[in-house]
Structure formats: structure tokens, C-alpha cells
Amino acid sequence: MDNYMNLKNSHPCFGGNKINKGRIHLPVSPSCNIACKFCDRKFNETEDRPGVAKAILKEEEAIETIRRALQLCPEISVAGIAGPGDTLASPHALNTFRTLAVEFPDLLKCMSTNGLLLYEMAEEIITVGIDSLTVTVNAVDPVIEANLCSGISYHGRFYEGEEGAAILITNQLKGIRKVASSGITVKVNTVLVPGINDEHIEAIAKAVSEAGASIYNIIPLIPQHALKAAKAPGCAEIERARQQAGKYIDVFRHCQRCRADAVGIPGVKEYAEQIYFGKLTAKETFSHG
């Protein structure tokens, strides 16, 4: 809890609009190991949403990228890796964080993951010294999760439907418990999908809180991919979900749904165009294997 309170005073996301701090997202993770029905990962310069980046950044480019970013935006206090694939599906994120710990020891280190490999890689995450970890948990019931995720690629096999969903949920909750017990602040994201998990938010919030998560972020669905015909939740639905979750856990209320290559102060100053656009060559490297 002490680490969480410290983050509220030093992290642009945890502190919301109360602090004038910035962040840089390093898009070093190319692949993913689960197939979410609402996820449409793309390389472009225009869409302002998670799962999108101009290109993949090589590990060795990360240090120079941060140096350029700090020159443009000295307010940056956080280096995060949020994809555009999953951070644990390849070694690039943790390798990059090891380098950052040496080159930029004062920057907070934040990572996002779907949590499939979280439990078995928890010790490595703890050793690297992540300050905060975000885990996307969209259900704690395999029947509901199977309606949101087609399957998972796990140790050389693709598990579909409820079988894959059960493995994912088990690994997420066990991983959250293990990482949180080390003192790392854990935030949980849930994509709110009306008609699928909107009546399940209270159960998710209760489960992740009991596992040790400190804060809960409800992200409204962006209809796309296999759920392109689904309805995005309205303000009243989002607020109702937040009230339900708030019975069990502190609720995050100012998410900007940032790109995987965001740079700057959220909602105030963005520098991704100067840092990334035109400097990298996009490569279609996404996979679910």
C-alpha cells in the first residue's frame, strides 16, 4: 500500500490530473499469446487506443528514445511498456527494463500484461524491479471469459473456449497474488462489454482485490474485430460498473486509453510524433503463437 500511495504522488496515471508528470511507452513487445475478440492490433499513426503503435522498437533503441523524449518533455517520470503485443510473450520488455534500471534509475518502471504467463514469470518481474504492474482481467468465470477470448497459446498448444479461459484466469489470479505480495503495486484493467461481462464486474473486482490488486480500471469497449457489432457502454453503464467495483477496491477514473507508443503528459502534451513517427519502419510482426 505504501508503494501505491507513492505512485499517486509521482505517476501521471495514478495521480490523474493532480500532478504534472509525463510518461513514455516503449513499443518493444511484438507478439501476443491470447486472442481477445475485441483486440485489433495495428501499426499506424492515427488511432488513439491501446494495441496501436507506429512500429516495433528494438531493445537497443530504447535508451536513445528515452533520451530524446526527456529532452522534449523533462516532466517524464515513468517508462512503461504496454505492448503493442503482450509484454511476457517475448523477452524484449523485461530485457529493456533491465537496461532502464541501469541507465535511468530514477524513472518509474511500469508494465502491462494479459497475465497468461504472470505466475510463472513473477519472480523475474520482481527481480527486474517493476514499480507497477497492470493486468487485464476481463472475467473470473471461464464461461464469460470464453465469450471475450477465443483461446490462448500456452506452452506450445492452443487452448480454445472455456478450457483456455480457465487456464488464463487461474494464472492471472495466482500471478497477481504473487507479484502483489512482493510490494509491487498491481492495477487491474477490465474491458467493459455490455451483454457479456457488465453484470460480472463486482465479482471481478472482489476476486482481484482479494488477490492483492490495489486499483481497478474499467475500460469501455471499443467495438472492433470479432466484437465490432457489439455496443460500447454508455456513461451510465460505466458509472454503474465503477460503483459496483468500488465496493471492493479503489477505482481508477481517468484512463486515457493510451497508445503503445504514447509520449508526454496524458491529455496535455503529446510528443509521440516527434519521437517515433518517421523514425521507425513498421513491421507486421503480430502473432498469437
Rank of each mutant, 00 (worst) to 15 (best):
K8S: 07
K8C: 13
S10P: 12
F14M: 08
G15T: 00
N17D: 14
G22F: 08
R23Y: 05
H25N: 14
H25I: 02
H25F: 07
L26R: 03
P27H: 02
P30S: 03
C32Q: 04
N33K: 02
A35V: 12
R41G: 07
E47G: 09
D48W: 09
D48H: 10
E60C: 05
I63E: 14
E64G: 15
I66D: 04
R67Q: 10
Q71I: 13
P74N: 08
S77W: 03
A82L: 11
P84W: 05
D86S: 06
L88P: 05
A89S: 11
L94Y: 01
L94I: 08
T96N: 04
F97L: 08
F97N: 09
T99G: 12
A101Q: 15
P105I: 00
L108F: 06
C110K: 03
M111C: 09
S112L: 14
L117A: 05
L117G: 02
I125W: 06
T127S: 12
V128Q: 13
G129A: 01
I130C: 14
T134A: 15
V137N: 02
N138V: 15
N138H: 12
A139W: 00
V140R: 03
P142V: 03
V143L: 09
S153L: 10
G156M: 00
R157H: 14
R157I: 13
F158S: 14
F158I: 14
I167T: 01
T170Y: 01
Q172V: 03
Q172D: 04
I184G: 04
V186W: 01
T190L: 15
T190V: 15
P194L: 01
D198A: 13
H200S: 08
I201P: 14
I204K: 01
A205L: 10
I215W: 01
I218Q: 01
P220D: 09
L221E: 06
L227A: 00
K228Y: 02
P233K: 07
G234Y: 10
C235W: 07
R242S: 04
Q244K: 14
G246I: 07
G246F: 02
Y248S: 13
D250G: 09
R253P: 09
H254Y: 08
C255K: 10
R257E: 09
C258R: 00
R259G: 13
A260K: 06
D261H: 09
A262H: 13
I275Q: 08
K279F: 03
K283Q: 14
S287Q: 02
H288G: 11
G289F: 12
G289Q: 11
